[in-house]
């Protein structure tokens, strides 16, 4: 569950963003669209605690994340927020499985190896768990990202352009997969995108301008 109220942010005196309020309960998907420069990525970074807003409230799971100090915010991010990025980033030296397990270790200090294996299996990556991430296709890499975002059962999944580098078919598959998984894991899913292909898939939408 994630809620925001009157969130504003400015990079400089001339560039100010005022974001519409967001209210996304568990299991629901919210699509945030808008053209380049309207602050989509900025909003996502604010929600993920990577940026501090100038004013407003952001509440995740009844926790006002702006009240947390840096170290607690890092820990909270690890446990309650799963982020999926436009490009797939990995620890290149670690295997696919270790990349996913790493996220559980950082957040909870325990290695959820079995769980990582079952999520990867669900996402059709069973045969690739011991490969290096660079050996996978882009679509497969994006699915590893999803597995990593889900490993800690986050309250909120934040996805930044998760489909923009995929072809039509894969884009729809990934989008549906994300929304299904959000329901299954009872997480709030926020997808930030300019990808027109997704607009028809989701009921709840906000357009930034």
């Amino acid at each position: 569950m994630i809620k925001t109220q009157n969130v504003t942010f400015s990079y400089s005196a001339t560039q100010k963003f005022h974001f519409p309020d967001i209210d996304c309960p568990n299991g629901q998907t919210l699509l945030v669209t808008g053209n380049s420069g309207t602050g989509k990525t900025t909003l996502l970074h604010l929600l993920g605690g990577l940026l501090q807003p100038t004013a407003g409230n952001i509440t995740i799971n009844n926790q006002d994340i702006l009240q947390l100090n840096a170290a607690k915010l890092d820990a909270f991010r690890g446990q309650s927020i799963g982020m999926i990025l436009q490009k797939s980033f990995f620890i290149e030296a670690l295997s696919v499985l270790d990349n996913v397990v790493l996220a559980s270790w950082i957040a909870k200090k325990s290695k959820a190896k079995e769980k990582a294996l079952s999520i990867l299996d669900n996402l059709g990556l069973k045969d690739h768990v011991h490969k290096l991430p660079s050996q996978l296709s882009i679509g497969q890499q994006q699915r590893v990202n999803i597995a990593r975002a889900l490993i800690n059962n986050p309250s909120v999944i934040l996805a930044d352009e998760p489909t923009s580098s995929l072809d039509d078919e894969n884009a729809l598959i990934v989008a549906r997969l994300l929304s299904d998984l959000a329901k299954e894991y009872q997480s709030s899913l926020i997808i930030v995108t300019h990808d027109q292909r997704l607009k028809s898939l989701f009921n709840h939408q906000i357009t930034l301008s």
């Binding site: 690890g78 927020i81 982020m83």
Partner: peptide
């Protein structure tokens, strides 16, 4: 730096 950013968004601290 992307590797570092990735570690941070999965919850790693600056000190780590």
């Amino acid at each position: 730096r992307y590797e570092f950013a990735l570690l941070r968004i999965t919850g790693a601290t600056k000190f780590q």
